[in-house]
């Protein structure tokens, strides 16, 4: 599904990703862990199509299509979804209208008619129940005045509405208390199918107790320095990142 080969990325002349290789297949959950500043958020931004980053080398293929040649909205139309670490507040645009526009733009790109309002509303209600959200969310301005937890829940709500093929959750656990974390994780798990895949980007192991990964990768200094199963996350939780850093530094 997703195939990243030798990806090298810089911003303002500063090299951040120094040769990433990653393959994600349908149905899989991958966790990308790593200390702060290792390039985790850069990787998610580049997959989603943020323009400030310069891709110097390598490729990203998504279902055999060159992702790097597509605009962010085209990537979304192909089924890529990024849950933001810091969702943006957009005053004056309600949650309902934002989602309605996003869904219908995707449908338009796929040659489908707009979703009938009644069907849209029914779907919204259903997904809000899944995430234990209050109905009045819908009429509020997008993320404006939302608490950290509400913002993250709203991200997963949008994901549930858009039904992406590949969801990238960037530090979705930050700013969540344990109850909210459980609800959000439960929502993500319910949305899993054998056809879609998830990449969980996180600093801590905590979220992975709820969203259990098939693979764990450690990103350090712009490279994936270690990959393993879910036990690797526990080991990191136990021993911290220093031993991985040391191993990686010794290799260099």
């Amino acid at each position: 599904m997703l195939n990243i080969k030798d990806l090298k990325v810089s911003i303002e002349g500063k090299s951040i990703l120094k040769g990433i290789n990653l393959e994600v297949k349908p149905g899989e959950v991958h966790a990308i862990m790593g200390p702060n500043g290792s390039g985790k958020s850069t990787l998610s931004s580049v997959i989603a199509g943020r323009e400030e980053y310069e891709v110097e080398d390598g490729s990203i293929n998504f279902n055999n299509e060159d992702l790097l040649s597509l605009d962010p909205e085209e990537r979304a139309h192909r089924g890529i979804f990024l849950s933001f670490q810091y969702p943006i507040e957009i005053p004056g645009v309600s949650v309902t209208n934002f989602i309605k526009t996003a869904i219908n733009e995707s449908r338009k790109a796929q040659g489908l008619d707009a979703m009938p309002a009644s069907k849209m509303l029914k779907k919204m209600r259903e997904k809000m129940r899944l995430l234990e959200m209050d109905q009045n969310f819908l009429s509020r301005s997008l993320n404006e005045g939302f608490s950290g937890g509400e913002k993250k829940r709203n991200e997963i709500f949008q994901m549930a509405m858009l039904e992406p093929k590949l969801a990238i959750l960037d530090e979705t656990d930050s700013g969540l208390d344990i109850d909210a974390l459980r609800i959000v994780a439960n929502g993500v798990n319910k949305l899993r199918t054998p056809e879609n895949a998830t990449i969980v980007i996180t600093h801590y192991q905590r979220l992975l107790d709820y969203i259990v990964p098939d693979f764990v990768h450690v990103l350090y200094n712009g490279k994936i320095v270690k990959s393993g199963g879910k036990d690797l996350a526990l080991e990191l939780e136990d021993k911290g990142y220093d031993w991985v850093k040391k191993e990686a530094d010794n290799l260099v």
């Binding site: 605009d71 909205e73 990537r75 957009i90 934002f98 996003a102 733009e105 995707s106």
Partner: peptide, 22 residues
């Protein structure tokens, strides 16, 4: 805000218009 909207599938032109309208 523009990138956020585009990453959810809203085309740049539409996203700009929505932001100005809001």
């Amino acid at each position: 805000a523009l990138f956020y909207m585009r990453s959810r599938g809203i085309a740049e032109k539409e996203a700009k218009a929505m932001l100005m309208y809001a």
